[in-house]
Amino acid sequence: MKHIISALVENKPGVLAQVAGMFAARAFNIDSLVVGRTEDPKLSRMTIVVVGDDRVVEQVRKQLAKVVPVVKVQDFAGEPVVARDLMLISISAPPEKRPEILSLIEMFKGKVVDIGPKFIMVEVSGPEAKIEAFINACKPYGIKNVARTGTIAMPRQAKTEP
């Protein structure tokens, strides 16, 4: 099962290496890892997606908590969360296909961020499944480039998506 693990870590050099090194040394697989600042300049947040059975993920959580500069670890599995990926995707878009492609983008609430003679670049964000679906929908036109962030997440208070 996929688990989204959120770790608050001290914002200082070497922390990413310590966390990544722990994952490598213990043969835990990382699906994605995102690091960013938080509201507190002394802390960063790492959002790590790992796949594994509950025992493995429990070990991941405990070993992560043991890394000295890791301040707090949460496993969001089973909790209502908002989880989002961001993607930039460059799609082959000859003039005759553009209307079709633009309506596709609209369906996915994407945003055109760059247009060239042959390609358009689109920004899409949302749950991972939506990103995957958009990639699949674009495949027939030809994809030139994809850049994705990996998941960030936060627990939600309301039980369902608004």
Partner: peptide, 8 residues
């Protein structure tokens, strides 16, 4: 003393 040792 090490929680990570439990059920490892």
């Amino acid at each position: 003393i090490d929680p990570a040792s439990i059920s490892k």
